[in-house]
Nucleic acid binder design. Structure first.
Lengths: 333, 333
DNA sequence: TTGTAGGCGTTATCAG
DNA sequence: CTGATAACGCCTACAA
């Protein structure tokens, strides 16, 4: 009866499993003819190495896990898209886990990913529970924090400076003359990036001598609509609204349209992310472009570099840039 | 010296590996006290079963692969989000592969997924290369086609009826009085769902006795803008534009805003997908709601059912429904 | 209820 | 350059 796997090939070729294994991993020390013979047998048998057996023997799974809040926000989807594309280049598979808005789930998800053999992990943001960190280094599993450019827990980070982003955004608004700026942002709780951006906004406002009105809302279009309503129906005065996420800005845009407010004549609008519709909206949205795709690619190459040639991961700070379009103008009066 | 794995635990507890393994897989035939003792040892040792070894012994990886065109379109991201959530309930990991707009890459990606041990695959659309199909059943790897409700290749499908969707959409438009309808759709090549929707549109138009103007464009907001321009600058007359994807509709909405055309007074607009902004746009978008999340969940449970209790996957046709909002009205004339 | 022993398919270490 | 053979860590008949 035909044996399976390398054994079968060994039998078929009259060689030993060692030799088969060698050509499988293209080791150099194998006779050209022998190799050809093996290759032929492999082809003939339609042989595929068993990944589990290989993983067991090598202790490498070539799998990397990523845990993100959700895939439903295109910012994460775009990021993971880039990660996946790049990881594939290096022969790594990406397995995804979402926390669906319960940050407490992060540790659990990380555990599941580790339990299924992930060799490294991609995390969102800089803050992670002590338990999670403990687990990581108990198992010696490397991890990278993303969307941030520094952490206080020893993990490397690959991302952008959220504080700077907030600061740059208000500064830009102030520079064209806005003195009172409404700032719409997503939930602060469990989102260090939002908190960082807000801190940057406050810092920038102070420096520029302008005042900000902070308003928290849900991180989606509806949240933008509601935030705009609260702001517009409120008693506070402002000439521009800065949204710390483009999705929120889209809601504001819609709500302004609804009220017959024209942007940027009646009110200036600025976002953050530079989602794909931003260049095509009416008016085109001035926003902060986040290097999402570059970040994804860099995370992937960093991880591959670490795993394949154990180059330590260097924390990287990618530049975000303001892209001026038509939704911001100098205030009227 | 301490041994590793189950062997170590066996030694530590004075039991045999078999017993350890039994409690690990919570077999019922193990003494309550014994089990407790093992559990304690496991806790004490911080023991984690090695997934590769387990996979090797059981021939199960508890991993499912999905190949989608991209994660950058929220329709796929939302779908996979649902798949992931549900799969996690059953203890399966989701590994994702994207084809990034080269459909020829699908077979390669499928191969990679199989080579890394995926037990089943989730495919997009009903059409797949012969080679891919051959590979699947050569390896005996089950697969489901999604976003469609039937296939001609023997694979089960879980999704919706795209033809019906197109038909329902024009029919709706016709029912409120539109006689000439412009239809904006994404690339037909390599997208059977789009082709199906178009077929439905044509069929519905014929039945309702209305005429359609088909226009292909890129499947993104910019594509919508450009499509709208082509249509609006063209010589053909129409009172409504039906977009076979909401992203395209968003572009049309923006372009109409830009031209001072008000929807639905000057022109009616209808989309397809029901993305999250659709309910909040100005005006709120009338669209066809695709059961993306339900589809994802069903795909996941179907696969789990097949793998865990080998219940064959039943092709399922999920209902899409028109959600009437304010972007469609009877034509003026 | 518990233990023994063999196998899952590769890789890797030594010899030859 | 090639071949035995022992891991790798877990599961699972078959026995006891």
């Amino acid at each position: 009866m035909k044996k399976t796997g390398v054994r079968g090939l060994a039998q078929a070729t009259g060689l030993s499993v060692a030799t088969i294994s060698r050509v499988l991993n293209n080791a150099d020390n194998v006779n050209k003819d022998t190799r050809e013979r093996v290759l032929e047998a492999i082809r003939a048998a339609g042989y595929k190495p068993n990944p589990a057996a290989r993983a067991l023997a090598t202790k490498r799974t070539r799998t990397i896990g990523a845990v993100v809040p959700t895939l439903a926000h295109s910012i994460f989807a775009r990021f993971l898209n880039a990660v996946e594309r790049e990881l594939a280049q290096f022969g790594y598979a990406l397995v995804i886990a979402t926390t669906e808005g319960e940050p407490e789930a992060e540790e659990r998800r990380v555990g599941e990913l580790m339990d299924m053999g992930a060799e490294a992990l991609i995390l969102s943001g800089a803050e992670h529970s002590q338990a999670l960190l403990a687990r990581l280094d108990a198992a010696g599993v490397p991890a990278v924090c993303t969307s941030v450019c520094e952490t206080a827990n020893g993990l490397p980070a690959v991302g952008y400076d959220n504080c700077d982003i907030g600061r740059a955004a208000v500064t830009h608004l102030a520079s064209v003359g806005h003195r009172r700026i409404a700032v719409l942002h997503g939930p602060k709780s469990d989102n260090d990036r939002t908190r960082l951006r807000i801190a940057g906004v406050e810092n920038g406002a102070r420096r520029a001598g302008v005042s900000v009105i902070l308003q928290e809302t849900a991180l989606d279009v509806e949240g933008g609509v509601e935030g705009a309503r609260a702001l517009l129906d409120g008693t506070q005065d402002f000439s521009a609204v800065l949204c710390l996420s483009d999705v929120i800005a889209l809601g504001v845009l819609f709500e302004c349209n609804r009220r017959g407010l024209t942007i940027p004549k009646d009110i200036s609008l600025m976002g953050c992310d530079d989602l794909d519709w931003a260049a095509n909206s009416t008016p085109p949205l001035t926003t902060v472009r986040l290097p999402t795709a570059r970040m994804g690619a860099l995370v992937a190459t960093s991880l591959a570099g670490l795993l394949d040639e154990d180059k330590p991961i260097r924390t990287a700070r990618l530049e975000a840039s303001i892209v001026e379009r038509a939704s911001v103008a100098s205030p009227a009066e």
